[in-house]
Design a protein around this nucleic acid. Structure first.
Lengths: 257, 257
DNA sequence: CCCCTTTTCGTACGACGTACTGAAATGAGC
DNA sequence: GCTCATTTCAGTACGTCGTACGAAAAGGGG
């Protein structure tokens, strides 16, 4: 089989492990009708795994723990899922299906804002996504639905195809970065078991014991101005600012065309 | 001990494990003069660990492997480093020390560009940083040097302290996101063991076997336009565009003050 | 020399993912 | 209803991990 691209036809290459991962996501095997009946569904396994990861992050997600949460032997899971990697793929696909994506035909700015906010809340409901999203999101159906919806908001708004890809990349980076920041705080807070006030005073021990005011004058100035406090809550305003700058690109593209 | 902040004095709280991590970074114990002489230095251990992680990522970084790379028993490492977590802290501090940071007094735009580029190349030399940077960079001296340099580029350029923090956050998110994207490709390429051309054809098997053109019309259009190809190389141009939008904020702040 | 401090590192424990294997359960063909 | 191929279930086990423990080795100060 060949595929045509701009610089000529290519042979299609299929590596077995990639194909296995993708097949599970896009064309999963139906439950067999012959033989012993399964006590669970693949959905049960994925749901239990998501619950575990929501609770304690990806570190808490072990095959043995998922199994015992389902009152099942550890190795039984391998009937439903080829391995831990593929289970995580399915988990991601499942939670991406929760998203309320902007409909086609909406104005680009509210649509893109919704796209960003939906990711923002998704990351906070399921912080472990950002642990798996290390390099790139998996090629799962609902992940691509989200990408499609994001690209769709801009594709007819003026920018070129390349610009659309670039802009959506910037939005993704922004949302992920914001989410990482607030999740970092949540985790540190609950790991020290302190409430919000006590957390800040605990952090202050660093400034008292080690921080060198002469080495870091700018940070000192900003700290004294209180500008390091409460970095959350700025998501909405930062998002608006980001959308403003995108609007400039969009307007410019519209004027040029 | 108490510390004064805007809303009153607080008691300083010190949790033992946080103090141990910070002490190792900011005030590491000198090598003892009594007793048996050590065969290594802490620097040796950290350097070997960095080499291993550069090679195979954080997954390849096990205490046993570091030890055997140094021709030493596994448990010997624990005389130099309290554990794996703290070793990674030291690794990060070490590689951040490589950065060529913008000097004070430089114009904000070239300085901020240098800050971004230095991070960009750092992430590509040591991709494992992005695996540890999951939630937040550690409070290590050279990490704070970088932060200080970044904040310094903007603090006297016009924006308020809060804006400076926000802008630098956006820049950090942008650079990390770009780096994650190109590293994702590098890793996929080398995991399939293919060169650049063969890699793209291998990816195309997904489009041929599973991709539904009707479900993803926008992605199809962008794919056909070739706008998904070669997302690297756009770092410099995207950075310039980002700096343009920051320049607007700076100009506006300057006009207002 | 001896003693005390420090480093070295073998052993071991409990976790992990999962390969292998055999037992148990079920539908299909007779 | 019996048989048998098929499928699920799960115990055992292997190699990996971080690291606690403790004994041995090595060196400095008296």
């Amino acid at each position: 089989m060949t595929i045509d691209k701009q610089d000529g036809p290519y042979e299609v290459v299929r590596s077995p492990e990639v194909t296995r991962r993708l097949t599970l996501l896009w064309d999963p095997p139906e439950p067999k009708t012959r033989g012993r009946r399964a006590t669970l569904t693949r959905e049960d396994v994925v749901a239990a795994a998501v619950a575990l990861a929501d609770e304690g992050g990806l570190d808490a997600l072990s095959m043995r723990r998922v199994a015992s949460a389902l009152n099942v032997g550890a190795m039984s899971l391998y009937t439903y899922v080829p391995g831990r990697t593929e289970l995580i793929d399915l988990m991601i696909d499942r939670v991406y299906a929760e998203m309320d994506l902007p409909r086609a035909g909406t104005q680009w700015r509210p649509a893109l804002a919704q796209y960003a906010r939906e990711h923002w809340t998704l990351y906070q409901r399921h912080p472990w996504i950002l642990q798996t999203n290390m390099w790139r999101a998996p090629l799962a159906p609902h992940v691509l639905d989200a990408q499609e919806a994001g690209l769709r908001t801009l594709i007819d708004a003026g920018p070129t195809e390349r610009q659309v890809v670039e802009i959506l990349g910037v939005v993704d980076n922004f949302v992920q970065g914001q989410a990482r920041t607030v999740i970092a705080e949540d985790r540190e807070k609950e790991s020290t078991g302190l409430d919000s006030d006590a957390y800040w005073t605990s952090m202050s021990s660093f400034w008292v014991d080690f921080f060198d005011v002469e080495r870091f004058p700018t940070m000192t100035r900003i700290w004294n101005a209180g500008a390091f406090d409460e970095p959350q809550g700025t998501f909405e305003s930062s998002l608006e600012r980001l959308l403003d700058s995108i609007e400039l690109t969009v307007e410019r593209a519209r004027a040029g065309s």
